[in-house]
Structures are given as structure tokens and as C-alpha cells.
């Protein structure tokens, strides 16, 4: 029995329809997340996806990049009610093919397929770009970079000259580092509902946990040791955040 995942995972599927898939030798399962998915053979994507903020988004491009990198032989099959999108990788939900097994065979692999242009709603990649770049120096990347660099510089300086902890504390305050971290979290909170449409919700949740640790409290920097300890901890979280961001960022950009 082959296995096909359906996304969003809570897409309602009648038992009769599940039985129809089984007759074609395919078990239809809700998308379980990247960690539990194992080898992905096919994903049925019902887009555009409605996120918890009520907004719709087209995530197909991000799914294709994710699958192409991690499961290049997989089929990405869009499902819906559009008649004008008929093609080897689109299945009309009320007018399914006679035999899904034959349809599966004819579907192109994720590395070969072409996605139809998204209609109406914005894409997940476009939203990531807004989150990342913003406008008028208001992007996550700007705030993250300009918070990270002073922290790393201050830590280097405190490690080299512990007696200068106070000037480093003043430097971090003058650079508005706490506010920059806060701006990072604000931007994340604003865009967070959209990431529900991505395949890697677990990884994004882990990233969010790291982001909550990006917090600089200069009032507790009362001596050299306390300053060094807080900055060292922060450096670890910054590195973990950066590492996860690098991986995820690649799925949102061409």
C-alpha cells in the first residue's frame, strides 16, 4: 500500500473517499509533520490554506522546494475545485479520476512539475520576504543582525577586558539592543499564523522557542560575571536561532 499525505492535516475526508483511495492501493493520511513523515511519496495539498488569523495563503511553492530538497521523487498533487487547473498534478475533489493509481503514475515528480500561478492570495514566500526584509529597515533580518552584532562584540570585549563590563552594558543600551530583540519578536508574532501553511511547523515552533530566549535585560548586568554570563547564554541562543533560520530561509527563497 502506498502512502499519500493530505495537507492541511485537518482537511475533512469522508470515509467513502478514503476507501476510494485504498481501492487504488493508496492510504490517505493527514500530514504528520516532517519528523514523523518518513519517506514522502505524495502530498495532496488543498490550497489556498486558511491560517488561524483567517487569512488565506498559497504555500505550494514552499512545499515544492521543501519536497524537492528532501523527497525529490515525491508527487505534489494539488486538490481543489478548480476546473481551469486540470493537469497531471491537479485533482478536482468532486470530479476525481477513475483510478487514482493511474493518476498517481501520470503525475510528475516534484522536481519536474510546474506550479500554476497562484490566484488572488499572496504566497507564503512573499510573506516570508515581507517578514524578513520588511520595508524601511523594518525587517526581521535587520533587527536580528543589528541586535546580534553588538551582543557578540560586547561579549568579546568583556571576555578580553572584564573590567570594562559597565561600558559594554552602556554600549548595548545605547544600541537599543533590548528593543531590537523586542522588534524581532513583534515581527515574528505578526507573521506567525502564516507559517502554519508550511510543511515544517515543528521546526518553526522550535525557532519560536529560541526567539523567546532572545532577551537582553541590562538591569541584571551588575558586574563582569553577570554580564558575561548573560551575553554567553544569549550568544548560544543567537547561534541556534541563526542556524535554524538559515535552513528554513532557503525554503522560502528561490
Amino acid at each position: 500500500m502506498r502512502r499519500a499525505y493530505i495537507f492541511p492535516a485537518d482537511t475533512p475526508v469522508a470515509e467513502k473517499r478514503r476507501a476510494w483511495f485504498r481501492e487504488s492501493g493508496v492510504e490517505l493520511l493527514p500530514w504528520p509533520g516532517t519528523a514523523a513523515a518518513g519517506e514522502v511519496q505524495a502530498v495532496l495539498l488543498a490550497g489556498p490554506v486558511r491560517c488561524s488569523n483567517g487569512q488565506f495563503v498559497h504555500p505550494e511553492g514552499v512545499w515544492r522546494r521543501f519536497l524537492a530538497k528532501n523527497h525529490p521523487a515525491a508527487r505534489l498533487i494539488q486538490i481543489g475545485l478548480r476546473h481551469d487547473l486540470a493537469g497531471p498534478n491537479y485533482m478536482h475533489w468532486f470530479d476525481p479520476p477513475a483510478d487514482f493509481g493511474v493518476f498517481w503514475q501520470a503525475a510528475q515528480s516534484v522536481t519536474d512539475m510546474e506550479l500554476p500561478p497562484p490566484i488572488g492570495f499572496t504566497t507564503l514566500a512573499a510573506l516570508w520576504k515581507k517578514f524578513w526584509d520588511g520595508h524601511d529597515k523594518g525587517g526581521f533580518f535587520y533587527y536580528f543582525s543589528w541586535a546580534k552584532l553588538p551582543v557578540l562584540a560586547a561579549l568579546d570585549n568583556v571576555e578580553e577586558s572584564p573590567e570594562e563590563w559597565l561600558s559594554q552594558k552602556n554600549f548595548l543600551e545605547s544600541e537599543a539592543v533590548p528593543q531590537r530583540f523586542q522588534n524581532c519578536r513583534h515581527r515574528w508574532a505578526h507573521y506567525k499564523p502564516y507559517w502554519e501553511a508550511a510543511p515544517f511547523a515543528g521546526e518553526l515552533a522550535a525557532l519560536e522557542r529560541e526567539l523567546t530566549q532572545l532577551h537582553l535585560d541590562t538591569t541584571t548586568m551588575t558586574d563582569s560575571a553577570a554580564t558575561r554570563q548573560q551575553l554567553s547564554e544569549l550568544k548560544k541562543h543567537l547561534q541556534a536561532t541563526e542556524s535554524t533560520l538559515e535552513t528554513l530561509h532557503s525554503y522560502f527563497t528561490t
Binding site: 475526508v13 486558511r50 475545485l81
Partner: peptide
């Protein structure tokens, strides 16, 4: 699209 999602539930 809200209709589409509801329609999926119809069956």
C-alpha cells in the same frame, strides 16, 4: 475559498 473548505466537509 471558505466555501471550498466547507464543501470538502460535505461528503
Amino acid at each position: 475559498e471558505t466555501l471550498r473548505i466547507r464543501f470538502f466537509d460535505y461528503l
